[in-house]
Write a protein that binds this DNA or RNA. Structure first.
Length: 980
RNA sequence: GCUCGAGUGGCGGAAUUGGUAGACGCGCUGGAUUCAAAAUCCAGUUCCUUUGGAGUGUGGGUUCGAUUCCCACCUCGAGUACCA
C-alpha cells in the first residue's frame, strides 16, 4: 500500500504539484512587492482585461504568460518587479445584460470577475493581487473623477507648450483680456479686453472659460448611435457602424463633454520617436493624428465689400493659380448666406439630401460625384478673377475649415468634380498633360502659368506663395491635424459619473474632498421617456451645496440644490491612468503617493493587443502628458516598451458530408476526409478499393459539405469520435458514416477565428485539467513567435507535456523513479550543455523569443538525459532556468533539491563561456556555395593551414574531378568555399 | 486605393552581423517493450527520374556564397478610408 502511494508521487503528478504551489504562493504572498527597495525597479504590465461573461479561451492568456515569464526572469535577475492585474470593469455588455434581465451590472461584473480570477489562478501567474484595481470600484473611480476635475481646471498654453492652471488664465484676462493669450481653444473665441472681461457676468465668464478648458462642454457634431442609445468616439466605430453590435451611426449635434486632445497632437506625434513600440502601431497613431503642413488662404466673397470670407486649408499653396472653383461642405455655415436666389432651390435640395444620407451611405458610395453651384463667386487673391463657389459632399465639414480651393489639375477629386460639372481645368504644370487625370506628384513639379511662381519647383513655390499671401494679408503657413477632440460623454448607466452639477446651465465641479460621487441606483437601465440618459431615472441625483451631498431630485431648487450631470464617462476614462494607480492602489488620500510614483516611474514592458492602437494607447498617452505637465507624474510617456501579442486562431474540425439526390430528396452520407480525398484525386473512379465507389454507383452525383465538429471530439491524429459526435448532434444519428477499413473516421482541418459558433474554442481550464498549467504555459510559448498570429491545435501539446515528464525523470533516476541527485563535480559535457542553455535562454528572453527557448530546454534535457546527468549543481541551475516558464514543476524540484524557500528569487545562473570552448571545428566544405561534406579541423589553424588541409583531403579531389579551383574562400571558424 | 507586415516540409515553426536551410515539436512509417493497452525507448521522415540533382511565393540582380541585401511582380493578413 505504502509503496503504491510512493510510486505515484514519484511520477510527474502535475495536479498535485500545481495545486500545492499555487496555494503556497497565495499563502506566503510570494509576489507582493513593496514601493521601496534597494533593488532596481522593473514594471511589467498586461493590458487591462474587460471581464466578459464568456470567460477566457486559450488565446487570451498568451500575453499574460509572456509577461509572467519576463517578470519571473527579472526577479531571478535581482529586480524588484511590479506585476499587477485588475479589471476594466465598466462597459457595455454588463449593461446590455442588465437591460435585458434587470440584473444590476455590478452583480454580473462581480460574477464575471470571480470566474476570470479562478481561470487566471489556475495558470500560475505571479501577479501581486494585493494591488488589484477595478475601474467600477468607487475607491478607484474617485481618482478618475479627480483627474477629470484637474483637466477642467486647466488650459493649454502654446507659448510654454504645456497645460497650465485655469486660474493663471483668469488673472491674465483680468489684466489684459485675451488678445495676448496664445492658447489652444475653440475656433470661434471672440476677443475681449480686460475691462470687458471684468464686466462679464459669472455665467458669461464661465462660458468663455469653457472654450479654453482641457475638458469642456460644447455643442459638437457627434457620432450618435440610436441602436445603442449613445454617442461613440471615432475609434469606437468601424465603417460607419458601431464597433460593438454593428449598429448604424448618424451625425448629430449634441451638448457633450469633450477632451481637448488636439492640444497635444504635436507632442503625441513627436514623442512617438522615444517609444520602443511596434512600428505598425506607431504608424497607425501617426496616421490617426494626421499632421499636414500647408497654408490657410482667405478668399473674399464677391461682390467686394460683402464682408464674407472663405478660409480654406491647402497643402499645395504652390498650385494657387490652378484654382478654378471652390467647394464648401454642404454643412458649411456660409452656404445659406451666399447662395443666390436662382440657385437657392437646387442648393437647398442638395443640402437636405446629403443631411439625410447617413455617414455610412456617404462612405460606401465614394464614386458618385454630386454637388451644386451656389451662384456665388469668390475673388482670386492674386488674379482678382471671380471663382465660382460650389458645394459638394466630398468636402468634409469636420476637417480643416470645411472648404477647399479646388485645383482640378493637381487633385484627382477636384479633377473628377470639374469634369463632371464641366468646370475648366487650367494647367499650371510644365510639360504635363492633365486632360485625363490630375498630376499630384510633388517631386517632379515645375510650376507654369502662375505669375511669380513660374518655373519654380514644388518646395520653392510653396514658400513663395505663402510669403505673397502673407503680404496680402490673405493667408499664412499652417499645420493641420486630423485628430479631433474626443467626445467624453456617454448616455449610459454603467460608467463613471461626472463630478458635475449645473448652476444656470453652467457646469460646476464638486470639490475634491467630496469625491467619489457614487453611481446612483436606478430602476431601469434604459434612457428615460424624455430621452435623457439612464441616470435620468435616478430619484436621488441632485447636489446639495450646503450639505455637500447627493440628495433627492425633489429638493432641486436651483438655489442650494442643483441637478447633477446625467451622462457618464466613456470606457477609456478608467483605463487611461490605471498603470499609475497600480503603483499605490489603496491610497485613499492621493491618486498615488510621491514616493510610489518616484520609485516606479513608468511601465518598462507593456504587453497587449494591437486593437488598442488609436483608442486606449492614444488617450493614455494624452492623460500621461497632461499629468506630466501638472507635475503629477515624472515621465511624459507611460510605457517605454510595448509588445503586441499575436492572435491565436482556432483549428476547426470539419466532418465531410456528401449530399446526394435520391428520388428528389436530399440524402446525406458522412465520409472520412482521407477516403474522400483519395477518391477525388484518383483518376480511376471505379477503383473498387475505395469504399466510396459502391456508394456512388448507387446514388450518382454529390455535393461536398463541411460540418463543424467540436474540436474536443477529435484526437491528435484528426480522428473523430463518431459516437460522441452523434450523441452531441442527434440529428446525425441516422446518417451513414463511411469510415476507413479499421473503422476510423478522419476530419479535415481549417484555421479560423476562435469562436463558439465554429466549435473550435479551447479553454485553458480543460488544458490545465488534462496536461497542467506548466504544459499550457510552455505550449502557448512553443507555438511560435509572440507577436505573430498562429493557430492553436491541442494535438501538439503532447510534445511539451512529455518534455516535462522527461525533465522530471532527470531528477528521479533512483530506484523505481525516486528522487536522486549526486553531489560530485559535473562533467565537462554536463557543463557545456548547461552553459549553452543559459546563454541561449537568456538571449531569448531578452529578445522576447520565448518559442526558441522552449526548444532549447528540450535539447538541454535530451542531452543531459543522454549524459545520464544527475549532478545537483547542474540540475539546480536548470530548475531556475526553467522556472519562469514552468514555475510549478520548478518549485517542486527546487524544494526536493533541499531548498525551503520559493525558487522565485533564486539568482539566475551565470553564463561562463569557458565551458563552451572547443578544440576543433567541423568545417562545412562548400563547392560553389553548396555544402558537400564536413571536415573536422583544429580550431586554431590559420587560413592557409585550413586551405591546405582541405585541398589535401581525398573528398575534395573527388568533388573537383581534376579541375583546378579558381579561388578558395576560407572564413576561419565558419566555412570553406571552393570556387571553380 | 494608400500604409504596414508576412510567404520556408503534411502541420506549428528554427536558422543572432550574408556562411552547413528545415533546429525543436506535432503528425506519419518501421521497430523494441507489453498477454494487451497506455506510457516509454530506438530508427527514419523537404522533394525528385537517387553513384546524382533540385529546393525558402515568382522573375531578375549584387556576391566566392542569399531564407537573409537590392529591383519588379504575385498571394495572404492587419490598419486606414473622399484629410484638401
Amino acid at each position: 500500500m505504502g509503496r503504491l502511494i510512493e510510486t505515484s508521487y514519484m511520477n510527474y503528478d502535475f495536479k498535485k504539484i500545481e495545486e500545492k504551489w499555487q496555494g503556497y504562493w497565495a499563502k506566503n504572498q510570494t509576489f507582493k512587492v513593496e514601493n521601496n527597495s534597494d533593488k532596481e525597479k522593473f514594471y511589467v504590465l498586461d493590458m487591462f482585461p474587460y471581464p466578459s461573461g464568456a470567460g477566457l479561451h486559450v488565446g487570451h492568456p498568451l500575453g499574460y504568460i509572456a509577461s509572467d515569464i519576463y517578470t519571473r526572469y527579472k526577479r531571478h535577475k535581482g529586480f524588484n518587479v511590479l506585476h499587477p492585474m485588475g479589471y476594466d470593469s465598466f462597459g457595455l455588455p454588463a449593461e446590455q445584460y442588465a437591460i435585458q434581465t434587470g440584473q444590476h451590472p455590478a452583480i454580473t461584473t462581480e460574477t464575471n470577475i470571480n470566474r476570470y480570477r479562478e481561470q487566471l489562478d489556475k495558470i500560475g501567474f505571479s501577479f501581486d493581487w494585493s494591488r488589484e484595481v477595478r475601474t467600477s470600484d468607487p475607491n478607484y473611480y474617485k481618482w478618475t473623477q479627480w483627474i477629470f476635475i484637474q483637466l477642467f481646471n486647466s488650459w493649454y498654453n502654446k507659448d510654454s507648450d504645456k497645460a497650465m492652471d485655469i486660474a493663471d488664465l483668469i488673472s491674465v484676462f483680468e489684466k489684459q483680456g485675451n488678445s495676448t493669450v496664445n492658447a489652444v481653444c475653440d475656433d470661434d473665441v471672440e476677443s475681449f479686453t480686460a475691462s470687458q472681461w471684468n464686466a462679464f457676468t459669472d455665467t458669461e465668464k464661465q462660458q468663455v472659460l469653457l472654450q479654453y478648458r482641457l475638458t469642456y462642454l460644447a455643442e459638437t457634431e457627434v457620432n450618435w448611435c440610436p441602436g445603442l442609445g449613445t454617442v461613440l468616439a471615432n475609434d469606437e466605430m468601424v465603417n460607419g457602424v458601431s464597433e460593438r453590435g454593428g449598429h448604424p451611426v448618424i451625425r448629430k449635434k449634441m451638448t457633450q463633454w469633450s477632451m481637448r486632445i488636439s492640444a497635444y497632437a504635436q507632442r503625441l506625434l513627436d514623442d512617438l520617436s522615444m517609444l520602443d513600440w511596434p512600428q505598425p502601431l506607431k504608424d497607425s497613431q501617426t496616421n490617426w493624428i494626421g499632421r499636414s503642413e500647408g497654408a490657410s488662404v482667405t478668399f473674399k466673397v464677391l461682390p467686394e465689400g460683402s464682408g464674407e470670407n472663405i478660409s480654406v486649408f491647402t497643402t499645395r499653396p504652390d498650385t494657387i493659380f490652378g484654382v478654378s472653383f471652390m467647394t464648401l461642405a454642404p454643412e458649411h455655415e456660409l452656404v445659406a448666406k451666399i447662395t443666390t436666389l436662382e440657385q437657392k432651390e437646387e442648393v437647398m435640395k442638395y443640402v437636405a439630401a446629403t443631411a439625410k444620407r447617413s455617414e455610412r451611405d456617404r462612405m460606401a458610395d465614394v464614386k458618385t460625384i454630386t454637388g451644386a453651384f451656389t451662384g456665388a463667386y469668390a475673388e482670386h487673391p492674386f488674379t482678382k478673377k471671380p471663382i465660382p463657389i460650389w458645394i459638394g459632399d466630398y468636402v468634409l465639414a469636420g476637417y480643416g475649415t470645411g472648404a477647399v480651393m479646388s485645383v482640378p489639375c493637381g487633385d484627382q477629386r477636384d479633377h473628377d468634380f470639374a469634369r463632371h460639372f464641366n468646370i475648366p481645368v487650367p494647367n499650371i504644370f510644365e510639360g504635363v498633360d492633365v486632360d485625363e487625370e490630375a498630376f499630384a506628384d510633388k517631386e517632379n513639379t515645375v510650376i507654369a502659368n502662375s505669375d511669380f511662381l513660374n518655373g519654380m519647383p514644388y518646395k520653392k513655390a510653396v514658400k513663395r506663395a505663402i510669403l505673397e499671401l502673407e503680404q496680402l494679408g490673405q493667408g499664412q503657413g499652417k499645420i493641420n491635424y486630423r485628430l479631433r477632440d474626443a467626445v467624453f460623454s456617454r448616455q449610459r448607466y454603467w460608467g463613471e459619473p461626472f463630478p458635475v452639477y449645473y448652476v444656470n446651465g453652467m457646469p460646476q465641479m464638486i470639490a475634491v474632498e467630496h469625491l467619489p460621487i457614487v453611481l446612483p441606483e436606478v430602476e431601469k437601465y434604459l434612457p428615460t421617456e424624455t430621452g435623457e440618459p439612464p441616470l435620468g431615472n435616478a430619484t436621488h441625483w441632485a447636489w446639495d451645496v450646503e450639505k455637500s451631498a447627493v440628495v433627492s431630485n425633489k429638493s432641486i431648487d436651483n438655489k442650494t440644490v442643483f441637478p447633477l450631470e446625467l451622462n457618464t464617462m466613456p470606457g477609456w476614462a478608467g483605463s487611461s491612468y490605471y498603470f499609475n494607480r497600480y503603483m499605490d492602489p489603496n491610497n485613499s488620500d492621493e491618486v498615488f503617493s510621491r514616493e510610489a510614483i518616484n520609485y516606479w516611474q513608468d511601465v518598462d514592458l507593456y504587453i497587449g493587443g494591437s486593437e488598442h492602437a488609436t483608442g486606449h494607447l492614444l488617450y493614455s498617452r494624452f492623460w500621461q502628458k497632461f499629468l506630466f505637465d501638472k507635475g503629477i507624474v515624472p515621465k511624459p510617456e507611460f510605457a517605454k516598451k510595448l509588445i503586441n501579442q499575436g492572435m491565436i486562431t482556432g483549428t476547426s474540425a470539419l466532418a465531410k458530408r456528401l449530399q446526394f439526390e435520391v428520388n428528389a430528396q436530399p440524402f446525406f452520407v458522412f465520409v472520412d476526409a482521407e477516403v474522400l480525398d483519395d477518391y477525388l484525386n484518383s483518376s480511376d473512379k471505379t477503383n473498387g478499393e475505395n469504399p466510396l465507389v459502391s456508394q456512388l454507383e448507387e446514388y450518382g452525383e454529390f455535393v461536398v459539405q463541411d460540418i463543424h465538429a467540436d474540436v474536443t471530439m477529435v484526437d491528435t491524429s484528426d480522428n473523430l469520435d463518431v459516437e460522441a459526435f452523434v450523441k452531441w448532434q442527434p440529428e446525425y444519428a441516422d446518417v451513414n458514416f463511411i469510415t476507413k477499413a479499421d473503422g476510423s473516421f478522419k476530419v479535415a482541418r481549417e484555421v479560423e477565428k476562435m469562436s463558439k459558433s465554429k466549435f473550435n474554442v479551447v479553454s485553458p481550464d480543460s488544458i490545465c485539467e488534462e496536461y497542467g498549467a506548466d504544459s499550457l504555459r510552455l505550449y502557448e510559448m512553443f507555438l511560435g513567435p509572440l507577436e505573430q498570429s498562429k493557430p492553436w491545435n491541442t494535438a501538439g501539446i503532447s510534445g511539451v507535456h512529455s518534455f516535462l515528464k522527461k525533465l522530471w525523470r532527470l531528477y528521479h533516476s533512483g530506484t523505481e523513479g525516486s528522487f536522486a541527485v549526486t553531489d560530485g563535480t559535473p562533467s565537462a559535457d554536463n557543463l557545456k550543455t548547461l552553459h549553452k542553455t543559459i546563454k541561449k535562454v537568456e538571449e531569448d528572453i531578452e529578445n522576447f523569443s520565448f518559442n526558441t527557448s522552449v526548444a532549447t530546454f528540450m535539447i538541454c534535457v535530451n542531452e543531459l538525459a543522454t549524459q545520464k546527468c544527475n549532478n545537483r549543481e547542474v540540475l539546480a541551475s536548470l530548475a531556475v532556468l526553467i522556472a519562469p516558464y514552468a514555475p510549478h514543476i520548478a518549485e517542486e524540484l527546487w524544494n526536493k533539491l533541499g531548498h525551503s524557500d520559493s525558487i522565485a528569487t533564486a539568482p539566475f545562473p551565470k553564463f561562463e563561456s569557458k565551458h563552451l570552448v572547443e578544440s576543433s571545428k567541423e568545417y562545412p566544405i562548400s563547392f560553389n556555395g553548396k555544402m558537400r561534406f564536413k571536415l573536422e579541423l583544429p580550431v586554431d589553424l590559420s587560413k592557409e593551414e585550413i586551405e591546405k588541409a582541405v585541398m589535401a583531403d581525398a573528398k575534395t579531389q573527388d568533388q573537383l574531378q581534376g579541375r583546378t579551383p579558381k579561388k578558395v574562400i576560407v572564413v576561419p571558424g565558419k566555412i570553406v568555399n571552393i570556387v571553380g
